[in-house]
Design a protein around this nucleic acid. Structure first.
Lengths: 192, 192
DNA sequence: AAATGCGCTTGACAAATATCAAGAAATGAG
DNA sequence: CTCATTTCTTGATATTTGTCAAGCGCATTT
């Protein structure tokens, strides 16, 4: 089982072996250089990708400030879900923070999935439900936690990110300014 | 087409007419009195309901404070999605703020849906994707807006709620204290 | 080595929001 | 209607977070 197949299994739940290879064969290897764009806001996102290596920042430019919505790690899927599912213009811009290798399936090949893999929609349903659960957690963190709590929680669960990407992006993703982030960071470091 | 069927159509997208009646026939009418619980945190949520009339508050008890996650209007669906899809213990408690009438389908009858309605999973996928989009919007509002902005935005889109439920719940749902909510409210009212 | 650019930190200060406490207003029960 | 309870408001104050401005550290280029 290759890396893509393993991740499909992990993300989409139990899949039959022959189906797995059908699925993975529809994804095509691609790559981006650091700084390249995977997607620009306003365009339709007609692809879904699995990041094999590298980091992608998902953000939006709102009026005066730029908001980082997420930084996708390796072994994760990326797409603008609303755009992918409903064909709406995408809200997010996605840019490679490092060189990135990934596997992509395009909408045009997507129909084959539905035809060849029984229960594909069921798998996809569960995939999206997981995305939903992550969002629910994030909302909860904003309703019930201080900036410091959110920092702490995120740090414990994403320690590696902290020396791989500009910290200002993590600050934004957690809903605070770089300065606040820096001060909290100082406090936390001295505690160890 | 009855009310339930209309909402299924609106929520789940285009559905064939004969399928619609199959779907709606699997939902059973139920009701709660004000104060009754639809679901308690920690239990498994094995049902999905369409609220015909009344209001349900979805909240959780975290350490010292209670967090209101959402207030479901009439004509909306309620369930603990993670619990419903993955069988996990539910995070949320759901309580009737008024007398509530609703239609419910239980997990035990759910399989029939999958059998009788072609593309059911596809419909459900789109339903969940919509829920995801709502969450994405909410996260964005916390990353990019002040309490006052969030108040304003929510007010414009949910005006009716403001004289139907205790305002403290709306405050919590927007991620602020009742006092802050009250002060913002005063400012906004005087502006009109 | 000097110059540049970028990201991070720091301090001083301002603004937003929370906390606490008291009282007013609204609601519900008898 | 009256009383009791809950919800909302208000003021005083504390805390958290943001803003602005400056400087430092580090990597890259020349």
């Amino acid at each position: 089982m290759n890396e893509l197949e393993k991740s499909i299994q992990a993300y989409f739940g139990v899949v039959k072996h022959e189906e797995l290879s059908v699925i993975s064969s529809l994804f095509k290897a691609e790559h981006l250089k650091k700084g390249d764009f995977y997607l620009k806001s306003g365009l339709q996102c007609n692809k879904l990708s699995f990041v094999k290596s590298g980091l992608v920042r998902i953000y939006s430019q709102s009026e005066n400030k730029e908001v980082t919505q997420w930084i996708s790690d390796k072994s994760s899927f990326i797409t603008d879900l609303s755009s992918w599912v409903f064909g709406k213009p995408s809200r997010w811009t996605m840019q490679a923070l490092t060189d990135v290798t990934f596997f992509t399936i395009y909408k045009s090949d997507y129909q084959q999935l539905e035809e060849k893999v029984r229960d594909w929609h069921k798998l996809e349903k569960m995939f999206i439900a997981k995305c939903f659960a992550v969002m629910e957690d994030r909302i909860f963190s904003h309703l019930s936690m201080t900036a410091e709590d959110r920092y702490q929680f995120f740090y414990e669960n994403n320690r590696e990110l902290f020396n791989q990407v500009p910290l200002q992006y993590i600050a934004s993703l957690l809903g605070m300014t770089p300065e606040t982030f820096s001060r909290i960071r100082k406090k936390q470091l001295s505690r160890v």
